[in-house]
Simulated scan of single mutants.
Amino acid sequence: MLGARRSYSFSDADFNLMNSTNPIAISVTLGKLDDDILSVEHYGRFLRGFDNATREIHDEPEENDEIVITLKLMVNEDLEPDWCLFSVRATEEGFEKRLQWKHRELLSPTRLGTVAHHHLAWGNRSVLNKLSEESFDVSSILAELSRQTRQSFAAQEMPQLDEILGNVQTIANELGVPLGQLKALLDVNGVSLSNSAISLHNSDNTPLRMLGTGSSRLLVTGLQKAVGRPGIILVDEAEYGLEPYRISRLLHKLGSRDIDPTAQIFITTHSPYVLRELKATQLCVMRKSGLASPAPSHTFLTLTGDDEEQATLRKVRFNRWGSVESLSVLALP
Rank of each mutant, 00 (worst) to 15 (best):
L17T: 05
L17R: 13
M18G: 00
T21S: 08
P23Q: 03
P23F: 06
I24W: 01
A25G: 02
L30S: 07
D34I: 14
S39F: 14
H42D: 09
Y43N: 13
G44M: 13
G44Q: 15
G49C: 07
F50S: 04
D51E: 15
A53S: 09
I57Y: 04
D59M: 13
T70I: 15
L71I: 15
P81C: 15
L85M: 08
L85E: 03
L107Q: 07
P109G: 09
L112P: 15
G113A: 07
T114N: 02
A116S: 14
H118T: 09
H118C: 07
W122K: 04
S126V: 10
V127S: 13
V127P: 05
V127F: 03
K130S: 07
K130M: 10
L131R: 12
S139M: 04
A143Y: 07
R150P: 00
M158A: 01
I164S: 12
N167K: 07
L179S: 01
V191K: 01
L193I: 05
S194T: 02
A197V: 01
I198F: 13
S199Y: 05
R209G: 04
G214C: 07
R217S: 13
R217I: 05
R217L: 02
V220W: 11
G222P: 07
K225T: 05
K225P: 00
P230T: 08
D236R: 10
E239Q: 08
L250R: 11
R257N: 12
D258G: 03
Y273I: 02
G290K: 13
S293I: 12
P296V: 08
F300T: 00
L301K: 04
T302L: 02
G305I: 10
D307K: 09
E308T: 11
Q310K: 10
A311I: 09
R314C: 10
N319K: 03
L327Q: 04
L330G: 07
L330T: 12
P333F: 06
